[in-house]
């Protein structure tokens, strides 16, 4: 780790002004950022911790929606939406281990947009809205490829609003070492159609599997997916699975997610 200053503001306004300093960076739960600092892969001069800002934490129920503060930990989400959005709660409750879940935040996860992270699948499949200090961004516009998002420099994810689906499930096939998603599929059924988002698989990060969406929107059943498959091209290949294997797993996990959604 290189040395840095740390600030712990208690309001969003203070955080934003602190982030105006040279080489300042937001610190969420630190579950991604701290390891990269320790490996000397990042060298911010100032870390602005968001952990003490109550106004970006917590869960509020709306009319057919649930809104989660950007600074809310995975553990708080797992507990807080268990009734309103069980598939999302299950996803949050299966990220990393208890230590990671008690620190890591939804805002940090979405800002980071790791191509194998879980939350991006939920956000994209739910057609959620990412709320920042300056604007609202539709999920379809937010994810822009591996580790890339619509966020501007210094922009903070303050909340995420999820429309609550009729049925949903997230199926994660774990990468054996990191236990992130080798392939993760989130299926969400809404009155106006089904959305299917896939994480872990593609070289361009989380994506919607539109053929599956169309098939499931017409008939929400495993049988509707028969014969549907994705090409291996464009899928990530690494020590843990080739592109072809990942493409295959997407089809399998999608079917299982439909079954699990009931």
């Amino acid at each position: 780790m290189y040395s840095f200053e740390i600030e712990t503001p208690t309001s969003l306004a203070d955080a934003l002004s602190a982030l105006g300093q040279d080489e300042a960076q937001a610190l969420g739960g630190g579950q991604t950022l701290i390891p990269s600092l320790k490996a000397r892969l990042a060298s911010p001069a100032v870390l602005v911790s968001l952990a003490k800002i109550d106004e970006i934490k917590g869960i509020t129920a709306g009319d057919g929606t649930v809104t989660i503060g950007g600074g809310t930990t995975h553990a708080a989400v797992a507990a807080g939406v268990a009734g309103s959005y069980p598939a999302l709660a299950a996803l949050a409750g299966n990220i990393g281990d208890p230590a990671v879940r008690n620190r890591g935040t939804i805002g940090g996860s979405l800002a980071n947009n790791d191509p194998a992270a879980c939350y991006p699948a939920a956000v994209l499949a739910s057609g959620a809205t990412i709320v920042t200090n300056t604007r609202e961004i539709a999920a379809d516009d937010y994810f822009q490829g591996m580790f890339t998002t619509a966020l501007e420099e210094g922009e903070i994810v303050t909340a995420v609003t999820f429309p609550i689906p009729e049925k949903a499930a997230y199926l994660k096939f774990e990468q054996p070492a990191s236990r992130f998603a080798l392939v993760g599929v989130f299926v969400a059924k809404y009155p106006d159609g089904v959305r299917v988002a896939v994480t872990g698989a593609s070289e361009s990060g989380v994506f919607r599997w539109t053929e599956a969406e169309a098939a499931l929107s017409a008939d929400f059943s495993v049988a509707a997916l028969d014969g549907l498959s994705l090409p291996a091209e464009g899928m990530m290949g690494d020590l843990h699975g080739s592109g072809a294997y990942r493409a295959h797993l997407v089809a399998v996990m999608t079917k299982r997610a439909v079954t699990a959604a009931g």
């Binding site: 054996p176 070492a177 990191s178 690494d238 020590l239 843990h240």
Partner: peptide, 21 residues
């Protein structure tokens, strides 16, 4: 689970717990 893997240039691919299971 476990496998220590080098690429053909001798770079260690399984150099952390993210890839060494």
């Amino acid at each position: 689970l476990e496998s220590c893997v080098y690429d053909e240039n001798g770079q260690l691919l399984s150099a952390s717990y993210m890839d060494y299971a």
